[in-house]
């Protein structure tokens, strides 16, 4: 641990839609310089928690701090990657157009994007391997390529904290590992990455820390602490046969985790 400042502090967070709480009294602190996974079944409030952290939804109670401050004070240090389906990909824009949006700020909207912006955008496109598609219209990309456009846009923000909503959906295995090594590299530079993830089989490989949600906070901690049969059945309900399979799988995978130097 570098300092005492957490990348994200979530205190007693409750968020409701129409008076119906979908997140209930959530509480966690996330350290800087880690890759953190948020997992939980469909409708468990993962997207909602990200939106609440980003100030897109007003919590009914509780509060969030980022790098020990309110979001508005540190906004330039945070990048948000929404779920891919949240936008219309038929929008008339090229890959470069969208990635350049990562350079937009509330304060620079009225000036044209400059050379630095363009360079940063092109570098970000190169990092996700889309250089040959940079002028392509975004509707003419595959789902995985569109996802990479979103990641490039976040990279162009040059933030310290990245919040990503299911960045691996519809991405092939090769791209997934390419993105993952990109994230590892960012982590090594001291950046913090929070990812909503669905694939339980890969979580223990990918993440340093896990938050398991199902409206309430079911568990938080290092993968081996969180991925227990009890926690998973609390979160995912009764499908125990499936769950015990997953737990077995995770146990088999524990060896490589240790190898990576995660102190257990």
């Amino acid at each position: 641990m570098k300092q005492d400042i957490h990348a994200i502090e979530v205190h007693n967070l409750t968020v409701s839609y129409d008076g119906r709480p979908v997140l209930w009294d959530i509480d966690f602190n996330l350290e800087c310089g880690k890759i953190i996974g948020v997992i939980g079944p469909n409708g468990s409030g993962k997207t909602t928690s990200l939106k609440a952290i980003m100030g897109l939804l007003k919590p009914s109670s509780g509060f969030v701090k980022i790098f020990g401050k309110s979001l508005d004070e540190v906004r330039d240090r945070v990048a948000y990657v929404p779920q891919r389906e949240s936008v219309d990909w038929d929008f008339p824009a090229s890959v470069l157009d969208v990635v350049l949006m990562g350079r937009y700020r509330g304060t620079n909207l009225f000036r044209r994007s400059n050379k630095t912006d363009l360079e940063i955008a092109l570098q970000s496109i190169a990092k996700v391997g889309l250089t040959e598609f940079k002028d392509r219209q975004i509707s003419q990309l595959s789902g995985g390529q569109q996802q990479r456009v979103f990641i490039a846009r976040a990279l162009a923000q040059q933030a310290d904290l990245y919040l990503m909503d299911e960045p691996f959906v519809g991405v092939d295995a090769a791209t997934e590992s390419a993105i993952l090594s990109l994230l590892q590299e960012m982590k090594n530079q001291g950046k913090t990455v929070l990812i909503i993830h669905h694939d339980l089989q890969t979580v223990s490989d990918y993440f340093d820390y896990l938050v398991l949600l199902n409206t309430r906070l079911i568990a938080k901690g290092e993968p081996h602490e969180v991925l227990t049969k009890e926690n998973l059945s609390n979160a995912y309900g009764g499908q125990l046969t499936l769950l015990s399979k997953i737990v077995d799988l995770i146990r088999q995978n524990e060896f490589p985790v240790r190898e990576k130097g995660v102190d257990l």
Binding site: R75, V78, A79, G106
Partner: peptide, 8 residues
């Protein structure tokens, strides 16, 4: 949503 997230 992204626009909001960058403070617009």
């Amino acid at each position: 949503d992204f626009a909001k997230s960058v403070g617009i």
